[in-house]
Design a binder for these strands. Structure first.
Lengths: 189, 189
DNA sequence: GTCTATAATTCGATAGAC
DNA sequence: GTCTATCGAATTATAGAC
């Protein structure tokens, strides 16, 4: 374990915090370096550019549960609990979300993350390809909407909820998106 | 109707478009002025500062329907149709949402808009004050999540949905947040 | 009312000493 | 590896000519 590795790790931690708190433009390399207590030029030396620094700092795995190993009627419940727990105080997610609101390359990264991790999960339980993509997209509207209102906009009533209450409210919604009838054929899940 | 009024209106239109497309930092006064085909100094003359320009450009009414005039079991449906229709191609909303992701004063504005327009709507159909605030907050997670994924992140499956399909999917979710049982007392709506 | 010129900052990135 | 110094570019905002 070299000294440089520890320095790089410290930079990444500070970068996540600054990007998550301030977004891309306001999170300056100078501010990130100051928080990591190193020289700003070291950031450039190790990561090449600000954009590459963000790419390194905002890379992560959702580590979604395998729904095929679970009873279908508890999919929403399991997924809600998992995501709420996994996202609580997660600078990496908030950093990516905040930056993606203004930087195209970060939004593209978010789309890639969605296509690579959320869509495949749903594809394994929904045979129709187009329907699977739709269900995954709807899941994203609710989950990213939660992250946005709770961690970025910080709407008071959303912040006030406990993770247990959140999971309880979200569970039937995710279940609806995963198993609900597709509009056109009318019925209820 | 003075020339100056037309100029101000043109600036506001251009500002909404630039803020909605680029966020706060990248939407420069120069770029906004160029799009409105006027001199950058005129923007300062009329609005004083960039922050005041955003405040003027991102002010709007949600014009939510009065749910007390509607049968309770169609609340979700009416609200879903209304919001989906009202938000389609709405630069003002997207501008505020995008800027709120990085600028504290815009996030505060979003919280004010929520507290002033969404919360009161729910308060009229939910007697318990705390529960009403929670329901309103949950509504916001889904509706702002839709705006985020469809208009800002542009997740392909979410963009691909028609407004009718969207309303059909969202309707039971909004109904759940408006009328569903509060976690703790278990039952279904 | 409109525009030019520029002040005052700030930032990402680079060059090079040690 | 680490730091100083600085370049070049871009920004908001202002002062003032016409």
């Amino acid at each position: 374990m070299k000294r440089s590795d520890r320095t790089k790790a410290a930079i990444l931690v500070a970068a996540r915090e600054r990007f998550a708190a301030d977004g891309y433009a306001k999170a300056t390399i100078r501010a990130i370096a100051a928080q990591a207590d190193i020289d700003p030029s070291m950031v450039m030396r190790y990561f090449g550019s600000k954009e590459k620094l963000l790419a390194a700092a905002a890379s992560f795995e959702l580590e979604l549960p395998d729904l095929t190993a679970i009873r279908p009627d508890s999919w929403g419940d399991v997924l809600a609990r998992h995501l709420v727990a996994r996202w609580e105080r997660n600078d990496t997610l908030v950093a990516l979300l905040r930056v993606a609101a203004t930087q195209d390359f970060a939004a593209e990264r978010m789309r890639t993350l969605f296509a690579g991790q959320v869509a495949p999960l749903v594809a394994r339980i929904e045979p129709d390809e187009k329907t699977a993509a739709t269900r995954a997209g709807l899941l994203a509207t609710q989950m990213l909407g939660l992250a946005l209102t709770r961690y970025v906009l910080e709407l008071p009533p959303v912040v006030a909820l406990t993770t247990d209450e959140l999971a309880a409210w979200l569970s039937p919604v995710l279940q609806h998106y995963l198993t609900g009838m597709v509009p056109g054929s009318d019925s209820k899940e």
